[in-house]
């Protein structure tokens, strides 16, 4: 294939369209308003939301959800969502891409660590004995029990036929 030929992976874009928030990538007209307000782009030249959207429009699967993708540098600040004149909601497209990377097994290993507490305890933060003592010292009431079984039931995957 000649090098100057532009290829679009529509199959990947179809998959992205099916993820919640993914469909809005189609509206991007590459104006860079998101880049102007993006703190991650300001502090790290490897992150550029317009380029991520361009890659989404091209369906560049490896660049977006392969190992070491720049999507994980997003600070989740929602400035791009606030500013985008096309309602692309770039952060939500990035989150859709993150969900796809998790499915593919290419998400950074610390993501699992940072999110598994919720599925295992119902809370995102581990209740340390030091904080337990501090709550007592501050005279705070005992914590209400967490309905862990209910939480686990609703996030359970459906049985494959």
């Amino acid at each position: 294939m000649p090098k100057d030929k532009l290829t679009v992976n529509f199959r990947f874009r179809e998959r992205l369209n099916k993820m919640p928030g993914g469909k809005h990538h189609n509206y991007c007209y590459q104006c860079s308003a998101c880049v102007a307000v993006c703190p991650a782009a300001r502090f790290n030249e490897n992150f550029n939301p317009r380029q991520i959207l361009l890659k989404a429009l091209l369906g560049a699967e490896d660049a977006l959800i392969g190992e070491n993708s720049p999507i994980w540098l997003c600070t989740n600040c929602y400035s791009c969502y606030e500013r985008c004149p096309q309602d692309v909601r770039p952060i939500e497209v990035i989150i859709a891409l993150k969900n796809m990377a998790v499915e593919k097994g290419t998400a950074p290993t610390n993501l699992a660590k940072l999110s598994e507490n919720i599925a295992e305890t119902g809370m995102s933060v581990t209740f340390s004995s030091a904080v337990k003592r501090r709550r007592e010292e501050l005279g705070l009431p005992e914590l209400k029990p967490v309905p862990l079984e209910e939480l686990q039931e609703i996030i359970k995957d459906d049985k494959k036929e």
Binding site: P20, V102, A107, L111, L114, I118, M123, S124, P147
Partner: peptide
Amino acid sequence: DIEGFTCCPDPIYFKARDKVKWLTIAAR
């Protein structure tokens, strides 16, 4: 104070893992 809440869940890491499950826990 009422009983029955879990983590909201967090809008960064758990949402990055699975947005549908994130919405489900929030809706609960």
